[in-house]
Design a protein around this nucleic acid. Structure first.
Lengths: 242, 242
DNA sequence: CGGATCATTGAGACGATTCAAATACGGTGG
DNA sequence: CCACCGTATTTGAATCGTCTCAATGATCCG
């Protein structure tokens, strides 16, 4: 794989410099690329993977199912996201991962990750950081879910996805592709599909977004952030020594 | 500090063996112990700490405040928990941390953590694991908040705290000290104080728990788990090579 | 062009909130 | 040791946000 095309490197370099050696190591770590079709499971709860998966292209979601068949999505993953780097140390998957679109995935054996932790301390910290950002996003979602209105929560999610997608070069003139159904948005926000629909209509009526098909355009970034009480600190989009 | 009294070591050894060398290193890493009184902030949002804090005794909560003054607690911390190990790499606190009781806290300089990552790969992985478990708990809370009823969510939280407290030796004959007000429980579960009260009454009426003052007793562990749809996988309470 | 999936709408029900007041509890000073 | 004060818990009633159920309309793909 050519160094420059790996979106993980793009993502990490937003947070700290990587040496050429580190980039090469990281890039060579991925041994296998596979395709998972839309609506298929990439991983299932209870799995004990021996490799971790990096999303190169497509959208994926971490989810859990509760007793009455209801589903909660606990993370949305975009190109450049490790969807189960945590399985390297957690060993057993405590949730499933679903391909929301056709996904192109590169995998790195846990044995290779172990070798990286033995030999590349700074690169290890960058991978650790990657999982810490996941955690920061979880906390932000928890706050939005517990204490924001449905509309604010939706606005918040859109702001986050907008910044995360632009960090990996997937936003053009305030527009992003968001191939996610309203039912999936509901499972993400903890809302019913019907209510998601009403909330989206409100954001459209307020002229904050346009959202037709899979194409979402931000019409008023300032006000969208206000409505969603969004500040981007938790995404750690600053370059620092780590 | 004597090795055997550090509750972090107790906690990590539940998940994997630590060598004597690692235990010594970890124990020596903590340079300072301080006391924070109940209701005081241990850390504030926006802080850029140069050391990380380990809770030796007491209860603490990570929280965020949203615009209308409402508060969401995104984590409850018990003895043995690192309350901001993530600040080592995240640098800026994206949330505050509040002492719910008088807290005894040991601190480790980030420079020391960096040295550990340079020299002790396995110990580094164990610290990383520690933050991954925080993340797993966040995901579980997200699911409970989004898709469980208020009563089930409360039951779930009680199950979790029960297991986490017993993992650090703070449970005796099904009874634990839970010095948390109903308002704080509300901020944790995303509920109003009034509703927390009603939910607790229901769990008492069903004879699942006794909860007077700070003392909570599990009366029917089996049924409490069922009501809360609780399974403990996400807490990684198994010893494995990591 | 037909079938399936997804988005939209309306109406009624329900869970949780708000506001307000009463009661219980724990710690402190006299 | 008890009276008192502040904090925490409990109760009731009205309201509100979101859900459920059910049906319709739009869109996409083969």
């Amino acid at each position: 794989m050519a160094v420059m095309t790996n979106p993980l490197i793009l993502k990490l370099e937003r947070r700290d410099r990587l040496s050429d050696d580190e980039k090469k190591t990281l890039d060579n770590a991925f041994t296998r690329v596979r395709i998972v079709e839309s609506d298929e499971d990439i991983l299932r709860e209870g799995d004990r993977p021996t490799e971790s998966s990096l999303l190169l292209d497509g959208f994926a979601a971490r989810y859990k199912i509760v007793s009455n068949g209801r589903r909660q999505i606990s993370a949305l993953h975009l190109p450049g996201d490790f969807i189960d780097l945590h399985s390297f140390l957690l060993k057993t998957m405590d949730h499933g991962v679903l391909a929301l679109t056709t996904c192109r995935i590169a995998t790195v054996p846990h044995a290779t990750l172990e070798r990286i932790t033995d030999e590349f301390p700074h690169l290890t910290r960058m991978l650790w950081l990657n999982t810490l950002i996941d955690g920061a996003i979880h906390r932000e979602w928890l706050t939005a879910m517990g204490r924001l209105s449905a509309t604010a929560h939706m606005a918040h999610l859109i702001c986050e996805l907008y910044l995360r997608l632009s960090a990996v070069g997937r936003v053009e003139s305030d527009t992003m592709q968001l191939p996610v159904t309203q039912a999936e948005l509901g499972d993400t926000l903890g809302l019913s599909t019907v209510h998601v629909n009403r909330v989206l209509q409100e954001l459209r009526k307020e002229e904050l977004i346009r959202f037709q098909g899979d194409t979402l355009t931000i019409l008023d970034w300032e006000r969208l952030q206000e409505v969603g009480e969004f500040t981007s600190t938790y995404l750690s989009l600053r370059k620092e020594d780590r």
